[in-house]
Each structure stands twice: as C-alpha cells, then as structure tokens.
Write a protein that binds this DNA or RNA. Structure first.
Length: 440
DNA sequence: TCATATT
C-alpha cells in the first residue's frame, strides 16, 4: 500500500497501475472466492476476489468485489461478463460494474463552487489549465444561461486535480467576486443518491419548507458536508431546515479525524476544506439527520387510506401506521401472536413452490410489517418484503409474501387479489420461479 | 411488475 504510493510520486502517470474494483452481482451464494477468481481469470487479469458476506451470519450475500490491476483489465471483465452469462442457481445474468465511487475516483473529477454568475468557460478553463490538462469542463447553468455558481471539471490525472484543488480551494477569488472559489472532489454517485434521499425524506416528513424553489440557493448544488467558508456558524441555509444537526460523540471529534476520511486519497481535499473553517468547526463533527428521526415525531396520517370492511380478520391491528417512511424501527406487534416471522429477523425466507406470492399495488406507506399483517390471516407468513427505492427511500409498491404452504398462498390470492387498498386494487399472484427450469 | 446485493 504505502510502497505503491511512493511509486506514484516519482513516475509520471499513475494511470497504468491504478487498480480498479468491480462490483459483481448475481453470484450464487455457494460460490467460493477461489472459484470466482478462476472464472474471472479466464477473461481478465484479477488480483483478488472478495465475496460480500452478511456481517453476522458470514453467509454470502450473492455478490462480490473483483480487484483488477488496471482499468483495461477491469473493462475486459465487464465486457466479457456483464449481462453475458447466468451462473447456475442465479435468477438473472451476472452484473459486473465499477464499484461505488470507482468511476469518480478514476475520473479525477472536481467540484468548483462560488463561481461568479457571469463566468465564462474560458475564464474557468484558463485558471484551471495552470494545473493540468482539463479533460472535461461543465459549468452548471440555469434558464438564462447564467451560471449557477458551480462547475464540474475533470483532469487527466489525480495529481493534476489535487494540485488545482490545493492551490485554488478557499484561496483564489475570481475577478469581480468577493468570495474565494471552493474546490473539492466531486461527490460520488452514492453520495448524490444519499442527498437526494435525504431531501425526499425531509420533504415527506412534513417539516414544511413551504416553497423550496424560492431559495434554491447554492446549497442545493453544493456537495454534502460542504460548509461555506467564513460563516461556519450560520450555514443552516434556507431550504435545509428540515434537517437537524447533532454533534457526534466526543471521541470521534478530535485527533482521530483522519479515521473519518473516506479511503482512496481524498484526504487532502477534506483537510483543505477544513482549513478554511473557524477553529473547532470541522465538517465531520456534525452529522445531518432528517428531522423525522426524532422519536415520537408527529406525522400527519397518510391521507386516503381505507381498509375495506371485507378485510379478513382484524388484520391491521390497532397500531397506527408507524411513521411514514420507515424512519422509525418498526415496533412489531403481530396481530395473532404467532411466532416471529423471518421478516422481522431480516433474512428472506422463501416458502415451498406455490407458497410464494408476488404482490403489486401495495399502498405506498406499507412496510414489511404492514404487508405481513395484511397477509397473515391466510396462513403462516414466513417472510414479507416490500421493495424500497434506494435513492428516495420510497416504496416501489410491490413485494413478496411467503407462506409455509401453497394452500395459504392460494387462499390469499382468492381473498386479496383485486382487493381495494388505499387508492388501488391489489394484484396478488404466485411468484414466478426461476429456479428449476434451467436448461442442462 | 418478480428477491438489486457495495466488505
């Protein structure tokens, strides 16, 4: 590791030996790392394979990371495998892509903030060209082609990007501007998604910012964790007051700061930002949480939900739906006092053939537990899962329920299919089975 | 609209 870094200093381009991590999905859970190495070595150079395992059970989660020695080799693996072949036991073809953050890391992409509204491409480009070759420059513009005050920029190499970052961030004012530019590593896709989800949640939680368009402000466009220079104490900007800040534990505050810096050589960028802050205000000393995370927060009850009278057996229990988007851990009350379902243990259990249901048009506010409750009148529910959009935290309105016997599933179909719940009619069908009909 | 999972 350390030696690799040393080498990076003295030779010109680090491109060639930069290793690349791939994420691979649809990996049968029984496959070992050795078997996977073998398989991928047929198509590309591979340094290492790591199966991703459940933290507690150590069982494979059906996916792995593959480390390739270069981008070229990684691309070979992607091209040869992604969506190209289905491993025995998998339900769909292998998914092979760059792991989260890899692409951004490889692109040496920077975010530039605090640009003047009337800045031109040429101005930005000539400033940043001092530090290296710009591969791509994109100034974000609004309707009247006026700049939104920020830009994304890619350099040829990490060293160039880092040089620009360190030289310009917080230090350089563009002509006619009273504040210095902000330069940091661009967010990864994942960080962007996290921010989107956070925004969606703060809006959904009813802490109303009645008009979020009124103050689009820089903050909408700024990277997560960014604190504007020179006013670190008052950055609760309009548009963010659905969010609360909590100090972290003291232990995490002080000297161990570097522990909080994401891997992969982003350290100096973060430190660069923090230098500009008033003493004692380090960006990572705060964690931002949706206001709804408070226990006992009062959510408006979801409108328009009606449970039909024909509903079998007191299904929903008396418990009001517990927070809107699963922010609060479900307080599990199983209406019939049956033994715990696996949905509460987190492991997905599939029932015997013919005992598994696919359900569509599930009301948006239903979580796993509400789904289980709604279907428990027909038999022992082994598991119930509602699918949630990772980016928004919102239900995708479909899910699965598994029983221990086909008869239970059948009677659930009879009773629940077409049943009006919320605005729409439930669609309740047997789950498709990808398993046993595989061609030899 | 059929189990998509990022150590």
């Amino acid at each position: 590791m350390a030696e690799e870094k040393e080498k990076g200093q003295d030779s010109c381009s680090s491109e060639e030996r930069e290793s690349v991590k791939l994420f691979v999905g649809q990996v049968p859970k029984h496959m070992s790392e050795a078997e996977l190495v073998c398989m991928f070595k047929e198509v590309a150079l591979v340094d290492e394979v790591n199966v991703i395992k459940d933290k507690t059970t150590r069982a494979s989660r059906g996916c792995c990371f593959v480390i390739c020695p270069s981008r070229e080799e990684a691309d070979k693996a992607v091209n040869a495998c992604h969506n190209k072949r289905t491993l025995p036991g998998a339900s769909s073809p292998l998914q092979v892509k760059y792991a989260d953050g890899e692409l951004e890391r490889l692109e040496h992409k920077l975010f530039v903030g605090m640009l003047p509204k009337n800045v031109s491409d040429a101005e930005v480009s000539s400033l940043f060209s001092i530090y290296g070759t710009i591969k791509d420059l994109q100034i974000l513009r609004g309707s009247q082609q006026t700049s939104k005050g920020c830009a994304f920029l890619k350099y040829e190499t990490k060293e160039q990007a880092l040089a620009a970052l360190e030289a310009i961030n917080g230090k350089y004012k563009m002509e006619g501007s009273s504040v210095p530019l902000v330069v940091k590593w661009a967010d990864t896709e994942k960080e962007r998604q996290a921010r989107r989800a956070q925004k969606a949640q703060s809006q959904a939680s009813g802490v109303s910012n009645t008009d979020s368009t009124q103050q689009p402000s820089l903050f909408g466009a700024l990277p997560m964790g960014y604190i504007p220079p020179f006013n670190g104490f008052s950055y609760q900007a309009p548009g963010t007051y659905g969010l609360m800040q909590y100090p972290l534990q003291p232990m995490q505050n002080q000297p161990g700061f570097h522990n909080l810096i994401p891997p992969i050589n982003r350290g100096s960028a973060l430190r660069g930002v923090s230098h500009d802050l008033p003493p004692g205000i380090a960006p990572r000393n705060f964690v931002t949480m949706p206001a709804g995370s408070y226990i006992g927060s009062a959510y408006p009850s979801a409108p328009g939900i009606q449970y039909p009278m024909a509903y079998p057996g007191g299904i929903m229990s008396h418990r009001p739906i517990n927070s809107s988007r699963g922010l609060t851990p479900p307080a599990i009350t199983n209406g019939r006092g049956t033994s715990p379902t696996s949905s509460s243990s987190g492991i997905q259990v599939e029932g015997p053939p013919g005992a598994n249901l696919f359900i569509y048009h599930i009301p948006q506010e239903f979580g796993d537990q509400e789904l289980a409750n709604a279907f428990q009148a027909f038999g022992r529910v082994l598991s119930a899962k509602v699918f949630i959009d990772k980016a928004t935290g919102v239900s995708k309105c479909f899910g699965f329920v598994s029983y221990d016997m086909p008869a239970a599933a059948q009677s659930a179909i009879n009773m629940m299919n077409g049943c009006q719940l919320g605005g729409k009619k439930l669609k309740v069908q047997l789950k498709r089975d990808n398993k046993h009909n595989k061609p030899y």
